[in-house]
Amino acid sequence: MQPINEIKLEFLSKSSNEAFARVVAAAFVSQIDPTLEELADVKTAVSEAVTNAVIHGYENSQGLIRMHCKLFCDAVEIIISDDGVGIEDIELARQPLYTSKPDMDRSGMGFTVMESFMDIVEVTSKPGEGTTVYMFKTFKSLIK
């Protein structure tokens, strides 16, 4: 399957860039004209992945976050990666309501939201080397 368009974006791990990243992803995906609800799904999933990189990956210090998007005629692939502290136990981190930062009003629902709003969510990580979140979504409204 060949993508019809592709972007790569690199930005600082500032919380203000959470909105920037999700708006860029939504603008990019809107080229194939999915429904507003499908666009909101992508925005929310990107927001969760970038927020994880800001809070957990870089623990609010500064580093670079990369977002790589490939657009297909009826789907999108989004890869968000950081060079932060990484995740020791990915299975535990993905569990609903699990959070390593309960004191900060974090709900522990980030990965659950990503899984619910996207079709595929894969996480690879190594402590000390960073985290990569791969997401894929087919837009049902565009399937012919």
């Binding site: 929310t44 927001s47 969760e48 900060m104 009003d105 974090r106 709900s107 980030g110 659950t112």
Partner: peptide, 13 residues
């Protein structure tokens, strides 16, 4: 206009 899982934490807290 938009909310992610941060909203759960705010309301729950």
């Amino acid at each position: 206009s938009f909310m992610d899982s941060s909203g759960i934490g705010i309301i729950m807290g």
